[in-house]
Design a protein around this nucleic acid. Structure first.
Lengths: 339, 339
DNA sequence: ATGAAAGCGCTAACAA
DNA sequence: TTGTTAGCGCTTTCAT
């Protein structure tokens, strides 16, 4: 039962299986690969031998010899701790598993350098395609992957400077939905706390809000805050906004992390209580009665996976840029209880 | 810029790098592997050639030839959508990255069969060790991995029927903490909604509550509910409990998913508002002012990674069963606001 | 339907 | 310090 070096039996090889089944190496290979031109009898004996020896094909050797790629697709995200990304990963996996494909997730830690690293890492692992939520503005580097014959699909943030498929949300319309909801709610001092300024998702959401707010007399440009990339800075921003002489009556959180920071700030210092509207939909938003503008993350992931699979089937197909709608989920305060 | 089959240049091989540098295959190999006994001049020319050709070592071939294992550690969890597991994954990665190791996550989908599958999958990918949050009660199957020379570390749920390292929380003490908190709060009708009945974490938390509650006059055995494995069933349980003629004054949620279900139910039907206490600490618990009994997930993951690395260093060391403390985080209601 | 030989890209011995 | 010769375990020609 112990794992001393001694009882670490070397794995049986195909040669051994073949020997045991009394056939040639190649025949054993054929049988286990499920190829045709193998007599039922031979097949049976090879399978039996393999089972007895507890044989498992050495994938590395197999892929090396055949020059094929692994039955897997890679997914690069910035932080698998973010529910948005894990939901995405789940959706991708749900879509590719029925096709016999595996998901290989990689963490770029929102660093361009790491992203480059892990993308090649995935390529080294012989993934058939890569799906990425890129943390960089310029995606030219991904051309290297494509040159290696690996299709790349961009998710949530569309491809820039490289020809590839993308699936994104209609963030601009999302921004409009958010703004209209608050304007309709009578708000005229609206703060927006956004992620990194260079992020396309942020910029588009912002632009959408501008589409609506700039047509009104609402004050909001002064109440704009950016680069609140993590919960802590979002909280700090919120506190700053709430301590303003004339604080906003509504705060829009640019994404789910920011929303958490906003809520933490409001919870801590309940001096003024602005209305809150979030982008993305963390699972707890419903419990807190927070209205959100969100897209279907499940659909986002599935669509990305579909594009990846489709390109594997036909390299020449036109690149697609799929845009998924966002919608407003309007909620009203409820007062949860605790002990 | 397009990815037509034609411009998919075959990757350069070591042979080509060697040729270009004007050295032998092996010399090139040595240079790139950073071995000693390579003259500075040779090293430079090989590196240059490799750079010019954009050479990348074929890992599969490398591992095959050397018989070594990849610099990676596998982590098996039941659902990477669960924040508890993603936090765990993050912690493991944080711990092993400085050692030059990569994390390879695998999803068992809480299925024993899948778990067996992915564990061998990881082994096929030549991971050096496997860390698992097992969804099965009997871990004898993991002996196969150990026989393959791959150390296994059990996290959150300790090893059963197999000799291996484990890191778990002191769930029994956690149960006691939860019970005492509620008793001290004056509660005498306490409901506990738990996960699958066979789960050790659940059983221990339950036992701990029994340690305390059975010494009191509190009613709770009748208010016990199990197998609320997902949010929906936890919500259903809660609704059932709240509609009882004499509903509980406090509800204990057995884990973070259950807690969400409980909160959803309470939010929806605010007829009676019991006190709520959770196990684990979802990020939103603070915002909602929910008291929880939790352990340090970061420490859990790091400790597991340390055990895995330690065993790689010394196969003969004694198996450890690390037990990490749980603590009560007592919170009081606050009333978050929304719009 | 089966087998023999060659080789995928690389590293490990052993020379030189 | 460098090169040569074998393979790692498997799949592919091409025979048979």
């Amino acid at each position: 039962m112990s794992t001393a070096p001694g009882d670490m039996a070397p794995r049986p090889t195909l040669t051994q299986v073949a020997a045991r089944a009394g056939v040639s190496l190649k025949t054993a290979s054929r049988a286990l690969a499920g190829e045709s031109y193998v007599s039922a009898k031979t097949l049976a004996s090879v399978l039996a031998a393999a089972a007895e020896l507890d044989y498992r094909r050495n994938t590395a050797a197999s892929l090396l010899a055949s020059g094929r790629l692994a039955d897997s697709i890679g997914l690069i995200t910035g932080d698998f701790t973010n529910p948005f990304y894990s939901a995405l990963a789940q959706a991708v996996e749900d879509e590719i598993r029925p096709q016999g494909m595996h998901l290989s997730v990689a963490n770029s830690r929102e660093s361009a350098e790491q992203e480059q690293r892990v993308s090649h890492d995935l390529a080294d692992r012989q993934v058939k395609a890569v799906i990425t939520v890129s943390a960089t503005a310029d995606h030219a580097g991904y051309a290297q992957l494509q040159a290696r014959g690996i299709p790349v699909v961009f998710v949530d943030r569309r491809a820039e400077n490289v020809d590839a498929d993308s699936v994104v949300f209609d963030n601009r319309e999302g921004g409009r939905l958010a703004a209209r909801h608050l304007i309709d709610g009578g708000h005229r001092r609206i703060a927006f706390i956004g992620d990194y300024a260079w992020l396309p998702t942020y910029r588009q959401r912002l632009a959408g809000m501008g589409d609506v707010l700039d047509e009104t007399d609402a004050e909001w440009r002064d109440l704009l805050r950016t680069d609140a990339h993590d919960v802590a800075s979002a909280r700090a921003c919120t506190i700053e906004l709430l301590t303003l002489a004339d604080p906003p009556t509504a705060v829009v959180a640019g994404n789910n992390r920011i929303l958490l920071g906003v809520m933490e700030a409001i919870t801590e210092s309940p001096r003024s209580s602005p209305a809150v509207l979030g982008f993305d939909e963390p699972e707890w938003a419903r419990v807190l009665g927070i209205s959100v503008v969100t897209g279907d993350v499940e659909a986002l992931g599935r669509r990305a996976a579909q594009l990846a699979l489709a390109r594997l089937g036909d390299r020449a197909r036109e690149f697609e840029n799929v845009v998924l709608p966002m919608r407003l989920i309007s909620r009203t305060s409820t007062s949860p209880v605790r002990g």
